[in-house]
Write a protein that binds this DNA or RNA. Structure first.
Lengths: 187, 187
DNA sequence: AAAATAACTAAACGAACGTTTAGATATAAT
DNA sequence: ATTATATCTAAACGTTCGTTTAGTTATTTT
């Protein structure tokens, strides 16, 4: 055997995640990652293979971070009110630390929308599809709406959530909250 | 005197604009621009100074392109219905040629949100502010709503438009149209 | 026809990118 | 204490980036 790692992989991934979250994949360089993660390139490559591998781990880390919110949402039983609360919880998470960086999944979805990276694209699509299924599930609670209406509303909410995450990068928390309130007026 | 340019600057800027529109600023390389514009680097640099200058001209070109829609919107007199029509006109423009690339201004706004480029950022902000003022103006037509409600609705519409443009990169035209319909139920 | 010059081609620039590698360092097992 | 080996540092790798430059081509003026 030989010496031990001087860093914890989960800890440095979280730091990388924050950098990707703030700047996106392409704009974040290995040099920036070295500095932010506090370890050098060799260590990054030996732990994560390459930049792409590190990004995938960062996405995992992000999903684990938001899974608390998602689980709360899954387990809720009040229908539309739960969806609204989920929107608020998401915005809260995105504004933590006064960093305006939206949702990493949505940012990634947008950045990779014209890319050839099928792995990333499929991960993003499956995340969105899961969310849509949850919206449908919640919309059905205590509701007499027909299937078509529910589908239409789920689509609406998914796009609203997408737009919200995009807007969260550039708008104030007050504007965001007004937006959520208006969104749910007629659902 | 000497020989004439073999290209038209307005024509090659439009080609550059489409490339920036599809891929964003950073992802679009000079090599790609050479190919798309059909002229070589020397010509690009002698006509536009550098990549940044070419991008600014591309933004101008885009604004000129959407100014038709914007002028129609400005001159309309029916209030909320005009805003809705403006949303539809914008989506139509964004889907022309079956290219899914959203709105160049919004894409740029998002890409440069964490950048240091004040020139670009200010241009984006002024574009958005103008739009917001137009929304307020149209919301006031045939309306008894108080100022606070109008401001809130204008904010809502601005974020909805922002989200719409972001979503237009990744969603189907049908989903987008459903979204617009749902958006204006709330106004 | 000759001279002048703007527009072209194509090669090269330095810098930064993601990635790899050679060598020094530290620690676990013998 | 010595050996083995995983982890570290730091320099270098080949590409690609945006940009510049030297040299050729074509057109207008004299």
């Amino acid at each position: 055997m030989a010496r031990k790692k001087e860093y914890n992989e989960d800890q440095v991934v979280e730091k990388a995640m924050h950098l990707f979250w703030k700047n996106g994949y392409e704009t974040t360089s290995m040099q920036m990652l070295e500095k932010e993660m506090g370890i050098n390139k060799f260590s990054i490559y030996s732990s994560f293979g390459n930049k792409h591998g590190l990004f995938l781990e960062s996405l995992k880390c992000y999903k684990a971070k938001v899974s608390v919110i998602l689980e709360k949402f899954k387990n809720a039983t009040n229908g539309v009110a739960d969806i609204k609360q989920f929107f608020y919880d998401s915005v809260d998470a995105n504004y933590k630390g006064h960093d305006q960086k939206g949702c990493l999944v949505t940012n990634t979805y947008n950045e990779f929308s014209e890319s050839e990276d099928q792995l990333i694209k499929e991960e993003m699509i499956s995340f969105m599809d899961n969310l849509k299924e949850l919206f449908i599930e919640k919309l059905k609670i205590n509701s007499t709406k027909d299937e078509a209406t529910i589908l239409k509303q789920a689509n609406y909410l998914l796009l609203a959530k997408h737009g919200l995450a995009a807007a969260a990068r550039v708008n104030s928390q007050k504007e965001i909250e007004d937006y959520i309130e208006m969104t749910f007026v007629n659902i």
